[in-house]
Design a protein around this nucleic acid. Structure first.
Lengths: 156, 156
DNA sequence: CACAAATTGAAATTCAATATCAATATTACA
DNA sequence: TGTAATATTGATATTGAATTTCAATTTGTG
């Protein structure tokens, strides 16, 4: 269920509304606010904390639990993706459209994260999925190592 | 710094001892016990809790914190790898030898984890690393979706 | 409108991860 | 070998993100 390439936001909203309808949930002001903030968030992979702080500025009454629950909802309906970089806090990002999915180079020296476009993984995963009778919706590719600055500073 | 293909365990022990020497740490009985248990653990990706329970049977005095700290040590010296499958607990596994690194198909329906051998990622990551002036030591590839049982049971 | 059901926000709870600290074990070195 | 210096251990306490609880409120249905 990858989203089509052409439609950025309204398509997402539609997907959310459909999910809410299907599951007999309810549309609320808070969900709309969080939706807008999350899908317009400039940085990649935001934490609940960060999003919460950002939202509170415009909307002081919003609760942390609501942000938490709403991101979980986005995750459930396939609009968001949760990552873990090993710092003990989950990070969320919008699910990418087909073709623009990106992956990560993670420096274990300084923690720097470099994103790179993925060219062959989609195709590779299709093959693996077929072999295992598996329907692949998403993937995570993370390459761990040392960035240029950290390689140089290292002994051994 | 991938470990050579031929030597399974003594090479690992050597690597650990070297690290301990270099960092002026100390060899202890507990570290040896945990080393043996961890690198002979039958299942993949063990949690601290699981390893601790297993160890306690033979060695009731061993402390949870020691297991935790020792796995962290293994991680530091590049012998172990930490994964997160999203259930809130970190999982550890021995770093694989070159060529036998495996990756995961993760079913978001039932949580089943299928491992598969990786054929092209090594080579792919070499290219990406070069482009970004990055030294890649390890990687994580996880494909998320539905396994055959779960695909069938799903609406939509 | 009125009822049933879901959501919210604040606060409490949970639980894995991590820190603390006195007792003990290991290493370095005289 | 013995002793001082230092790291480690294990029990326990603490931390902090994730999750639950619950009364008040909001939303959808008829």
């Amino acid at each position: 269920m990858l989203l089509s390439k052409a439609t950025p936001k309204s398509e997402r909203k539609k997907a959310l509304d459909e999910y809410i309808l299907k599951k007999r949930l309810k549309s609320t002001k808070q969900r709309d606010i969080i939706f807008d903030e999350f899908f317009n968030y400039p940085g990649q992979h935001v934490t609940v904390e960060e999003l919460y702080e950002k939202l509170k500025k415009q909307n002081p009454k919003i609760g942390y639990a609501t942000v938490y629950r709403t991101l979980k909802l986005f995750k459930e309906c396939g609009l968001a993706f949760e990552r873990n970089f090993g710092d003990g806090r989950a990070r969320y990002e919008p699910v990418k459209f087909e073709g623009e999915h990106h992956d990560h180079l993670i420096c274990i020296g300084c923690g720097r994260i470099i994103e790179f476009a993925n060219l062959r993984i989609e195709q590779y995963s299709r093959g693996v999925a077929k072999l295992n009778d598996f329907e692949v919706l998403n993937h995570k590719l993370e390459l761990y190592g040392y960035c240029s600055s950290c390689t140089r500073g290292r002994d051994k």
